[in-house]
Design a binder for these strands. Structure first.
Lengths: 198, 198
DNA sequence: GATAGATAGAACTGATCGGTACGAACTCAG
DNA sequence: CTGAGTTCGTACCGATCAGTTCTATCTATC
């Protein structure tokens, strides 16, 4: 329950509290799978409050997706940072983290992928696209550190494996992260010329 | 307009006509993005007819997805068959076909992927899973013909590239098919031992 | 040409949806 | 203590939805 009755001490706290509480509900049920009334009831907030902060259900959805994108991005970036300097270790860390996510019983695919597939709204498409931009940047940086001849292309190939693994894990094979990891490592240059360490 | 007024000569014709007419509408607007009333109006069929043949909107959706899965599967299988015996040519044909699809202005992602992401219904999940089963079989066969040491694993890796390319093409980069093709060819054994041609 | 089955089209139902309005309860500043 | 602002809870509104029913009309068959 993110909010109390009466005047709010910290409006920003209220806002983020609503977002955090709404995130799992929209993820589990789907963006159109839960109505504003039930959403607010489970949030412990009133419709009036939600509409004051976000203007519409669409506004709440976009705020939730933005927050989710940032969290996921920093989660992956953190795994890379914790893996040391070897790009092979970094890539291994990424796919191991993903596989741990797929193993979670609550895993229902990537919220960003699901939203883009079900929600035909330009703003949501932009959020998803920016999300993939950030992910591509991270993977391209690893490709560059690995000394790839064409880091941009390798980065895009790695992006296909990450997104493909998440989708296949959701709909077909929970072990997709392991296969993606093998493929990703196989795509890296076999001998690290390490000309692109910076 | 799949149906005329009056008694029908061929009920199966009516059924497939409804499915074919409904397919692009559900694809463009999303499964929940168009109501049964508008759907029937655009189909030129009455609600009574649709409900007689399919029982519910859900039944129509499942019939549309089944038909779509079969069409797409035979489309890809046809491209492989037309590419000759070299597994590298076959894989190239698959990704070239996919890229041609992504280049279509009407491309809005894979209907199967979209349905699975937006529709939290067990039956739809099963249709999608079987669809990916068939696709995995096809890719594993190519991997085997290519002489892969572990055709099952390579097949699954190729599946990640196919599905990842379709998703990324829909939401981020229309050229995903070209990058996927390069990655797929790089994953194939460099020297075709061709022990698995049969 | 009479009959039976299938159809289009439109009216209708009950439920649910997003969004608004309002009163009562609450907090904080003065 | 008072008043302004915030919140909850509920009631409400108009629109839309999936699904049903009815009638008039069409076609194939006998």
């Amino acid at each position: 329950m993110p909010v109390r009755k009466g005047s709010t001490i910290d409006p920003e706290r209220t806002r983020t509290g609503i977002i955090e509480a709404a995130t799992p509900l929209l993820y589990e049920r789907g963006l159109d799978g839960i109505g504003v009334a039930e959403l607010c009831a489970r949030l412990g907030a009133s419709k009036e409050t939600v509409y004051r902060y976000f203007g519409s259900k669409e506004g709440l959805i976009q705020a939730v997706l933005e927050a989710r994108s940032k969290r996921v991005t920093s989660w992956i970036a953190g795994a890379v940072a914790a893996a040391g300097d070897d790009p092979r270790d970094q890539l291994t860390a990424v796919f191991d983290e993903l596989q741990r996510w797929y193993d979670d019983p609550g895993f229902r695919g990537c919220a960003m992928q699901n939203a883009a597939a079900q929600h035909h709204v330009e703003a949501v498409r932009e959020i998803t696209s920016r999300h993939l931009d950030r992910r591509l940047d991270l993977l391209t940086a690893i490709a560059r550190r690995a000394g790839a001849a064409d880091p941009d292309t390798l980065g895009r190939q790695l992006l296909l494996l990450v997104e493909g693994a998440t989708l296949v894990a959701a709909h077909h094979d929970r072990n997709a992260g392991k296969h993606a990891k093998q493929a990703a490592l196989a795509l890296l240059p076999t001998v690290s010329t390490s000309t692109g360490t910076v």
